[in-house]
């Protein structure tokens, strides 16, 4: 009996040791109102999220809904984060991935230290890992990629160097360098040619506008016929990122778009 009591007490003691960590997260790490996930997937993701957020004492959450609760995905994500009690520590540090099923929009909202750990370039990197799966409607893989990448970035932040690299392709870098090298030469050449024109003023005059009799122009027909219209649409850049103030007055970072 004493042995059993000792075991219970020991278990309670051990639990008490871990309680402060678990107690800082009151909200479920994942809410799937949109119904993207099966129960087994939900359980698996919950486990992964809880592991990450407990390891770093940092909120990492996912929230999906079928209809947008605010005007924009950004406002919806911010409001859910602010009014839903998300965040860790005094500053409610964290990141949340929000998805609206009807409009097929997503938004990463960051708060507190989350704005530093998941800065503009970090969010671009995170988005590059998640978006391909969202576009394929493979939500489980998208959320798994989100958790793994968040883990990766938080690990870097923990080591004192938050991810802040631009994901630039070689083609892009070469393009920028070439444009920066050639544009000044081209501009200099165009301006020089423009000035050179002034050196030769003996040029033909193909017009006789100087010799129009004043007031002699009489327009007898001026007819504009509308024929047809063509409308073209191009997809807007899918993502935007930056710092903003939410409806609660708190400052959020974030990035989002449609898929």
């Amino acid at each position: 009996m004493k042995k059993l009591l000792s075991c219970v007490l020991l278990t309670l003691l051990l639990l008490t040791l871990f309680l402060p960590v678990y107690a800082s997260f009151e909200n479920p790490s994942i809410v799937d109102e949109a119904g993207y996930l099966m129960q087994s997937e939900l359980a698996s993701l919950t486990e992964k999220l809880d592991k990450v957020r407990n390891e770093y004492d940092f909120e990492v959450a996912i929230y999906t809904e079928s209809e947008m609760t605010s005007d924009t995905a950004e406002a919806s994500a911010d409001d859910i984060y602010d009014y839903g009690g998300y965040g860790a520590g005094e500053n409610d540090d964290g990141i949340m991935l929000y998805i609206c099923r009807d409009t097929r929009e997503y938004h990463f909202t960051t708060h507190g230290k989350g704005r530093e750990y998941f800065n503009k370039n970090g969010l671009i990197y995170l988005e590059s890992k998640v978006l391909p799966y969202l576009e394929d409607d493979n939500y489980y893989k998208a959320f798994s990629a989100y958790i793994e990448t968040a883990d990766e970035l938080l690990s870097m932040a923990k080591d004192g160097t938050p991810y802040n690299e631009k994901n630039l392709s070689t083609k892009y870098i070469v393009g920028v360098v070439l444009v920066c090298l050639l544009t000044p030469l081209l501009l200099g050449f165009i301006m020089m040619k423009k000035k050179l024109k002034k050196m030769k003023t003996a040029v033909e005059n193909d017009y006789a506008a100087n010799y129009i009799k004043p007031g002699s122009m009489n327009l007898t027909t001026s007819r504009d016929l509308f024929l047809y219209s063509r409308i073209t649409k191009t997809e807007r850049p899918k993502s935007s990122s930056g710092t903003h103030t939410s409806s609660s007055g708190r400052t959020h970072g974030g990035r989002g778009g449609s898929f």
């Binding site: 009489n218 219209s229 807007r236």
Partner: peptide
């Protein structure tokens, strides 16, 4: 114009006709 997802460009096509008189002197 634009909405949240797309940028739209509308091109209206017209046929214009102008006629009249104009005078020149001492070309």
């Amino acid at each position: 114009w634009s909405d949240s997802n797309y940028n739209y460009t509308k091109t209206d096509y017209f046929k214009l006709f102008r006629s009249g008189q104009i005078g020149f002197a001492n070309i």
